[in-house]
Nucleic acid binder design. Structure first.
Lengths: 223, 223
DNA sequence: CCAGCGCATTGTGTATGCAATATAGACTAT
DNA sequence: ATAGTCTATATTGCATACACAATGCGCTGG
């Protein structure tokens, strides 16, 4: 089970570990409520308990891990109530953010289109693993068109928090996935036309669709 | 300079230390950009470097401390740009929050009025130290009228972040302080009447006033 | 047989030690 | 004189070690 630290851009160990754990949680690999033993994780990541501890504290601050003092760290539980509030915040923050994005340069537009194509490829290839991270990157790069960096960070934090709920969702159907991709290209076109209203609208619709799916699943499981 | 850990409700050491440092930063005792050496703080708080480190990481996640890997922790800088974005978020979040508060029970109303009076007393006594923490508590108790606990936490986080900027402000003039108090009692009345719109309006106005003051000071100092 | 208590075990929280990295100052060469 | 480099020092980051708290189990007594 010895899982090695994958090479990433982050220089320091705690962040790398946090990234890994975040991913494991997001992909449902570490189910909600599970105990996150420090020693166990330490050997899994080939580090000592201290960086692991710091990573857990980080995730704790992000809200995807909870910490009972003297008892330990646990993967945070999911609830429809939390989901609702998270989405409410996301709607507020992302709408405000997208309302103020600048027009992308030609090279950036190129890159957006390219990324949208990549996403299409990944989807056709049936790879679900890489999909969500690329998906996230794609939208982050859109957010980055805003000069309000602090708000962008906030938006991404909320994105991460809601992302945990994706693991609940069934695999996206082929048809719905295609609809999503159409929307992505719609988005790129809107960006090209500097049609902020359109960008905002497309994103908001997508977000609300996601929200509906999540809340439905949660309701059906009495969470 | 041996500063002892004051007794507080928090059980664990890192949180207590974080609280202290947060306070020192908020009161301008640790000016922006200053180096926060781990060993130094450790001896000041009579603890070892590890809890201090965790406290710093905590504050780092909160955004009032920044961390250059392998270089150390520093008190975060202030900037009008950050302030603007923080206030933008506060406006969004608090407006949404206050729009959904419930009517306080009779006992709670009593408590609000009492707190407003306490604030008046503190102001007359010229005590500036206790004022801001009471002020904060007062508004937190209003936020707590919302069932959306996660959003309340978010609001308080943003409150803390903007609170750093208070240290820039000159001492409130007597007259303006009285105006503020009038507004507080206005607020309590609006709460009593379940007039959400009024509550929202009073708070929003206050917030924008604070924002203006902060941005003016920052502008005058070319920050 | 069950409830309550005490002990052992497990795991967290904190302290200390050591290696690695950044910083400052002096020295050298251009 | 100034820029560059090398070295000494201070500080961070991680690992190890130890103290303490919580949990679970067995034992005893009712």
């Amino acid at each position: 089970m010895q899982q090695i630290l994958e090479r990433t851009l982050a220089a320091n160990i705690p962040e790398r570990i946090a990234e890994q754990i975040r991913d494991l949680v997001a992909r449902g690999r570490l189910p909600p409520g599970v105990r996150l033993g420090q020693a166990e994780l330490a050997v899994q990541f080939g580090a000592s308990r201290m960086p692991v501890r710091e990573a857990l504290k980080l995730l704790c601050a992000e809200g995807i891990v909870v910490h009972d003092p003297n008892r330990g760290f646990f993967a945070a539980h999911l609830s429809s109530e939390e989901a609702r509030q998270l989405f409410k915040l996301r709607h507020l923050v992302e709408d405000a953010l997208l309302a103020g994005i600048r027009r992308p340069a030609a090279a950036e537009l190129e890159r957006f289109a390219q990324r949208a194509d990549e996403l299409e490829e990944l989807l056709n290839g049936g790879e679900r693993a890489g999909w969500w991270v690329r998906h996230r990157e794609f939208h982050q790069s859109i957010f980055d068109l805003s000069p309000e960096k602090l708000i962008v960070r906030e938006a991404m934090r909320l994105w991460t928090l809601t992302d945990r709920y994706r693991s609940l969702l069934p695999l996206p159907q082929r048809s719905s996935a295609e609809r999503t991709l159409v929307r992505k290209h719609e988005l790129v076109e809107a960006l090209a036309a500097t049609d902020r209203r359109k960008v905002l609208h497309v994103r908001a619709e997508r977000r609300r669709q996601f929200e509906r799916l999540v809340l439905d699943v949660l309701a059906s499981r009495n969470l």
